[in-house]
Amino acid sequence: MTTIAPARTTSLLEVSGVSVTFDGFRAINNLSFAIGPQELRAVIGPNGAGKTTFMDIVTGKTRPDEGTVVFGEVPRSLLRMSEAQIARAGVGRKFQRPTVFEDQSVSENLMLALKAARTPWRVLFWRETAKDRVRVAELAAQVGLADHLSRKAGELSHGQKQWLEIAMLLAQEPRLLLVDEPAAGMSFLEREQTTALLVELAKTRAVVVVEHDMEFIRRLNCKVTVLHEGSVLAEGSLDHVTKNPQVIEVYLGR
């Protein structure tokens, strides 16, 4: 199971034949998935379908029992890399619950996320430059937090934290973005903005969105992958998969 898939210029991430078992429970079962370098993809599926575990595997939090995960134009296996290495390779992840460093200011959060050297020694001697501050201000402006730079992240509203986290992801300049339920807890207007942002982002990089909200996915207008019991049940446009009788049975019908 250690054979590396042949290089394919069409896909940035290629997951093939991956399985994970937790205490006898097969969370992911022979899952295969591929996404191109500039593509927006929605992943849907009922609770327990393995959406979060899938993201855990790609980001290195969970090690699969078998299968391969290959990333990049020059394909590199992610399985031997640590979470931090994977993140530095260009995989960004946005969690379901907004996770920002609440004890630190918005600008500190963004500075942390800014693409720069990450080793302790380099960070110790790193001092912010005017360019960094401009970049932070830009990012904050992009997500509407320009006026809150010196506030503690813990003081922000739930929606603002979501936006801060997205700004932190952008600061990382990832080539693959994994977004877990971005619309949760957002107002209608914010959803609109989020949709626009995700579509915009997918023009320059790969974006995988895990979402429950069908309306939100419809607005994304992209290819959809349906997960069920740890493997891909159907793949295609939203209209295509919603007509699939199996999908209707396990997910939409109820």
Binding site: K61, A87, D103, M111, R118, Q172
Partner: peptide, 23 residues
Amino acid sequence: GKFGSALRAIRDDEQRLRFLGYP
């Protein structure tokens, strides 16, 4: 500076900091 910021980030949520690419 940033090092201190990273340390406090480790204290508060080290997993998140890992996903930002920090070893």
